[in-house]
């Protein structure tokens, strides 16, 4: 299979998932698309270097995580005053109830620490724990403890907002 076909297959299979992970990180659709594009640009540029030591999905998630974490710090991208500013502050009046809830969920995730946002987005995407642990290079035990804490934090933030 040629590079183009290989890339096309990866893109079709993983782009929607990567986009949702990026959405969890930034809460802003346009920015999430930028992050996703940046991720796949890197995938295309480095596909020849993929050694197959890990699963292609783990390799891809690592690129996505690193791209998100580094995006604002890159010299070519503007660093916002605070990442908080990047959250979608658009008027949601025309949104349906379901869309409003989804926006609230993104905003609740947005209140977590940067790394926690990525971890919980991967959990919600049902990426297996061993794969998340491998992506972040941490022990599975440590990851499970973290996930437990993040779930509690997110639940608290989300339902507190909802009750307001």
């Amino acid at each position: 299979m040629g590079k183009k076909e290989n890339f096309a297959e990866i893109y079709q299979q993983y782009a929607p998932q990567v986009l949702r992970i990026c959405m969890g990180y930034t809460s802003n659709t346009e920015q999430a698309k930028d992050f996703m594009q940046e991720t796949f640009i890197k995938v295309w540029q480095h596909l020849d270097h993929f050694r197959g030591e890990s699963k292609i999905s783990t390799w891809l998630y690592r690129i996505a995580v690193n791209t998100c974490l580094h995006y604002w710090r890159s010299p070519k991208n503007k660093t916002p005053e605070s990442l908080q500013q990047s959250f979608d502050t658009a008027d949601h009046e025309e949104y349906t109830e379901k869309e409003k809830n989804i926006q609230q969920l993104y905003q609740a995730i947005g209140q977590l620490k940067e790394t926690d946002r990525l971890i919980i987005s991967m959990v919600l995407e049902e990426i297996p724990y061993p794969e998340i642990a491998e992506t972040l290079n941490m022990s599975e035990g440590n990851l499970r403890v973290k996930i437990h804490r993040i779930k509690q934090d997110l639940t608290k933030i989300f339902f507190y907002h909802e009750s307001l």
Partner: peptide, 14 residues
Amino acid sequence: IDFSDDPHELLKTF
């Protein structure tokens, strides 16, 4: 810089 590197290592490199 290899973006598929372990995030800890990448942060150190940056």
